[in-house]
Design a protein around this nucleic acid. Structure first.
Lengths: 238, 238
DNA sequence: TCGCGGGCTACTGTATACAGGAATAATGCC
DNA sequence: GGCATTATTCCTGTATACAGTAGCCCGCGA
């Protein structure tokens, strides 16, 4: 694997894990020292991270780890919902074939049906859930929209599974799973019936489950710890 | 100005003007030779252009100028409409102050009211139109959404003024201006009344004016020549 | 004590050398 | 003459040297 890619992955990991706290200045040289690669790949990695939004360029050179306010996270989620809504609508208008995705949902059903959803269950759910969302994008068959949505989900807490782990410790976890899964089924139904407006509305509301989880997580330290990238969310300094 | 920025601007210009045709392979060295700057800034510029979507990375190194199908252009416009719709809705939900933008529209009125809209009028219209769209984004006060919308408009034909010039030679130009301006007014009204859903719907439909212009331009060589980046749109090879 | 100037340091932008790998062209063998 | 193999060439990834610059600290003087 190239140095640029490893630098990118490692830097991203350092940021999301919170090891590099929000606001931390990142000079190229300091990163070089930490990662033991030369400036060229570090530069490239920082540039990509800026594009992703995890890092912002400082006025007179260098970068800093970005901080996100709660409302920015909120808006990022809403944004994702809007784009996924577009995806679903496009798929519906095209009359895309939903059978493959439907089978994927059967697997999710199996997980939720289990008496207790353990850590493995959560991990598998995250995997299948992401596959489902990726599958919807594929149904829309629109490279520009796919590209844009990928960008929007670069922020970890804006991804479809961003806050799933926050539920893990909560009693209402199963309720959320059930509701989410029902929305999954409903959106496929809407697509199959070519009901574009309905498909769009469902996906928007589906994204707002994440917003609900965000609110829960912000009030619960333990839950927040489960959320990848939570260190970047500014605590309300009350 | 830095070499990276000049390289980026010049390369973008070469691509949009059609001097570098769609599909053209771009090796770093060939660009170095053409632009007379070293590989480092060329690399950076190519990476940015890939991010913008004007250029795509080839499997075994190097880049190629991207080609866009008509439906991709269509989807890019729809995408912009969806995002601008979100912007308008957010502004409405916040109850943003629309007076400054309303004054901007007065200036557009003055241009349209002139008996003949000459080249200067078109240029000024484009300027004010873009200022209006940028102003809406400011009203939404959402950095993530603003960032995403900026990305979506990086494609020249996805920008709010992308196809304005295509009207220049057409008799129905004034009609389109009048309709567009009415939508501008309506969306401000919706925002002022906090009618989020209405504001969103108007902006979506507003974007579709560009789609209409696209269809016209694709049937009219002279009009197409007025559109920046038209060289990248694949002609249906019938 | 405070303001000012000079030098210093830290850092980025840029060019370039070097190495490894892929594609292509050339050559020899069947 | 066709195919395989090798050599060459092109090209990217990476490291690094060099230059220019912004900010800072320290010392000096009022």
């Amino acid at each position: 694997m190239s140095q640029t890619v490893t630098a990118l992955l490692r830097l991203r990991e350092l940021i999301l894990s919170g090891e590099l706290p929000a606001g931390q200045r990142l000079s190229e040289l300091s990163v070089v020292e930490r990662l033991k690669v030369s400036r060229t790949p570090v530069r490239a990695a920082l540039s990509k991270l800026e594009e992703e939004g995890l890092v912002e360029a400082l006025p007179f050179g260098g970068y800093a780890v970005r901080a996100f306010t709660a409302s920015e996270v909120d808006e990022a989620i809403e944004l994702r919902g809007v784009l996924e809504g577009l995806v679903a609508r496009l798929a519906a208008e095209k009359g895309a074939d939903t059978t493959a995705l439907s089978r994927l949902l059967d697997e999710i059903d199996a997980i939720i049906a289990a008496p207790v959803v353990g850590p493995d269950g959560f991990a598998r759910y995250v995997e299948l859930n992401e596959a489902f969302h990726a599958g919807l994008v594929a149904l829309a068959e629109s490279p520009p929209v796919a590209h844009q949505l990928a960008r929007a989900m670069a922020l970890p807490f804006a991804s479809p599974s961003g806050f799933v782990m926050a539920q893990a410790l909560r009693p209402e976890a199963r309720t959320i799973f059930v509701v989410a899964q029902d929305q999954h089924r409903s959106v496929l139904d809407a697509i199959a019936r070519r009901e574009g407006g309905r498909a769009e509305a469902i996906m928007r509301e589906h994204a707002r489950l994440a917003r609900r989880n965000l609110d829960l997580a912000l009030q619960d330290q333990d839950a927040l710890r489960q959320v990848r990238g939570a260190a970047l969310i500014e605590r309300r300094t009350a």
